[in-house]
Simulated scan of single mutants.
Amino acid sequence: MPGPYLATEGPIAFSHRGFSPEGLENTLPALEAAIGLGFRYLEIDVRTTRDGVVMVFHDERLERVTNGTGRLADHSLAELSAVRVRGNERIPTLAEVLQRWPDVRLNIDVKDDASVRPIVEVIEQSGAHDRVLVASFSDRRRLRVLRQLSRPTASSAGMAVSAIVKAASPLGLARWVARLARVDCLQVPRHFRGFPVVTRGFVRRCNAAGIPVHVWTVNERPVMEELLAEGVGGLVSDRADVLARVMRDRGPWPQII
């Protein structure tokens, strides 16, 4: 049986870093905009400051989307309070996002090793175990978070475990690998380095093993509809507006959680 996080009717729609045509990714307005479109699952990224505060931010460095410079990890929370995303919005903390939207579920991509213990502390303090899914490209980092939590929390496979599950699925071993690796779902790209990852057979075998496949990052309506027809368990999209229309045409929206 799926845990509370994944226990919902039909495929899950995730907004990728919220929704902002202006590029205000991972900011409060971007997350608010996605929620306004009907999303109840938000994909976000986290990194940790020099003084141990978990921030909602994707890049290692500040330059691409902010007026700051250098690595986020080299700054304190106080120093980051003056930094603005696209010149307008501040970088929020994970604790702030959890508190602001208690009825929303977060798919949290843990971007650095320094975030392992701080994210555990935020989840424990907020009692958000059923509201978050722990993700990371690094399975080692992901498992370090899970082992330190006092209660089970949903988790998706990193790159290594995803590859092992894909290789094991034709042998009927996908469920065994997933259980051993503490994986509740796979979050994968449709293609990787030119090779198909998400195929109809792979999705069918994963579904039979009780492992939903979530596909990122899907921004075109025809591709969304094709993947949903193939039985994927979720889609992650930058185009939350498009995905919301697709989901509304399929059934109840906003998604009931």
Rank of each mutant, 00 (worst) to 15 (best):
T66W: 06
S162A: 15
N88V: 12
G201R: 14
R250H: 09
A114V: 11
S136P: 03
E89P: 01
F39D: 00
D103N: 06
I256K: 14
G68H: 02
P4L: 04
D51V: 13
T8S: 14
R90P: 14
P189S: 03
L173K: 02
R221I: 02
P102K: 12
G231R: 01
R147W: 14
H16N: 07
V97Y: 03
R147H: 15
S155F: 08
M224G: 03
Y5T: 10
A95G: 15
E124W: 11
R200Y: 03
L80P: 15
E220T: 13
R179F: 04
R204L: 04
A157V: 08
G158N: 06
V161M: 10
V242G: 13
Q255E: 08
N26S: 04
V134Y: 07
L171G: 02
V56N: 15
A30T: 01
M224V: 02
Y5F: 15
R142Q: 11
V165D: 00
L6G: 04
V134E: 04
S156M: 07
A163D: 11
A135L: 11
V116Y: 01
L243Y: 08
D103C: 01
N26Y: 07
F195G: 00
E96Q: 14
T69L: 12
S76R: 15
P196R: 13
R190H: 09
L133K: 02
V83P: 00
A135I: 06
E60V: 12
G18D: 00
P152M: 14
R221W: 05
G210N: 04
R140P: 01
D139G: 10
R86C: 04
L228S: 07
L227Q: 12
A33F: 06
L77P: 10
E121P: 11
R200H: 06
D139Y: 14
V198Y: 01
A178L: 01
A7F: 15
R190A: 13
V188I: 07
T66E: 03
T217I: 07
M159R: 15
A174N: 02
P2E: 03
S15K: 06
V177G: 01
V218R: 03
D109E: 14
V46Q: 02
I108E: 00
D112T: 06
A128H: 09
P21N: 05
R84E: 01
P189R: 02
V188D: 04
F14I: 00
R245N: 15
R204F: 04
P21I: 00
L143M: 13
R84F: 10
A174H: 00
I91L: 07
E220H: 12
G36C: 06
I35C: 07
T8R: 13
P92T: 09
A82L: 06
A73E: 10
V246M: 09
A178I: 01
S150T: 09
L31R: 03
